[in-house]
Simulated assay, not measured.
Amino acid sequence: MTTPFYVSPQQAMADRADYARKGIARGRSVVVLTYADGILFVAENPSRALHKMSEIYDRIAFAAVGKYNEFENLRIGGVRYADIRGYSYARHDVTARGLANVYAQTLGTIFSSGGEKPYEVELIVAEVGSTPADDQIYRLTYDGSIADEQHYVAMGGNADQITEQLKRSHREGLPLDEALRVAVDVLSRDGSGEKRTITAAQLEVAVLDRTRSQKRKFKRVVGAQLARLLGESASGAADAAAEGGNGADGDGGSGAAGETSEE
């Protein structure tokens, strides 16, 4: 009888963490930062069908990088949790902190289980408050760890370099157009600092806007509004959108261009 190959628990966890980190790093980055009237979400994503950021509840939004099918399952679960809790108790009982705790338990259980691979995802759960001081941004990693972020956060791709650039560029109380330009500027720089051009057609942008009169504060920024905020001409943005939407640079059925099933 052969002796089973032994792997220490520490080595097994290290291998699982390395596997998840490599999968996440292949995806394009997402930047979340505060601005004067709320929280801004920006990602390089040419697909118009597969979103990296979505509404969860009235004041709460979700952003993710990694395997699309995995974080989409988590998003759907979060929407169900929020709907059930809001219906069972009250709408103000649905909070980003509560949702982040639910996601942390799910990701932690999957990561520590030997029966399935870890999720190759990182998540952000954000809630816009009545004032800037009440805004909340939580970052969750593949192993269920939670970080309470202040003012800005980046994940996926070259997130460390982007975070360093945000530290230098971001300041509290930025108007929306300036905050968007800061986000696009840091996303357009590669690991060596070289800058490339990112057009409106290549971006997915959304906000949690505390000034909206509706209970639902989530809003996607698209089309002419996005072009105007970026300083692009409306006709140029329309031409770029037409080129980006012809399927050549889309996600196909599983992810953004060049990333197979990673988002």
Rank of each mutant, 00 (worst) to 15 (best):
V30R: 04
Y68F: 15
A96P: 00
A82H: 04
F218A: 01
A17L: 13
V94I: 10
S47Y: 06
L50C: 11
K52V: 05
S233C: 08
S188G: 10
A200T: 08
K215A: 06
A238T: 01
V125N: 04
A90Q: 10
A147T: 14
S130I: 10
G115Y: 08
A240E: 06
G191I: 12
I137G: 00
G108M: 14
S88A: 13
R28N: 05
G252V: 02
G258S: 12
S188Y: 09
R21I: 15
D143G: 02
E262M: 13
Y57D: 06
R189Q: 13
A20M: 04
H170L: 05
I137Q: 04
S192M: 09
G253Y: 01
R26Y: 10
V128C: 01
K52I: 11
T199F: 02
V102C: 07
V7T: 10
V102G: 01
G244H: 12
H92V: 13
A126Q: 08
L180I: 12
D239Q: 14
K117F: 04
A63D: 09
L99I: 09
L50R: 12
L33T: 12
V30S: 03
K52C: 14
E55R: 14
H170K: 03
S145V: 10
L187C: 06
L40F: 09
E120G: 08
Q225M: 09
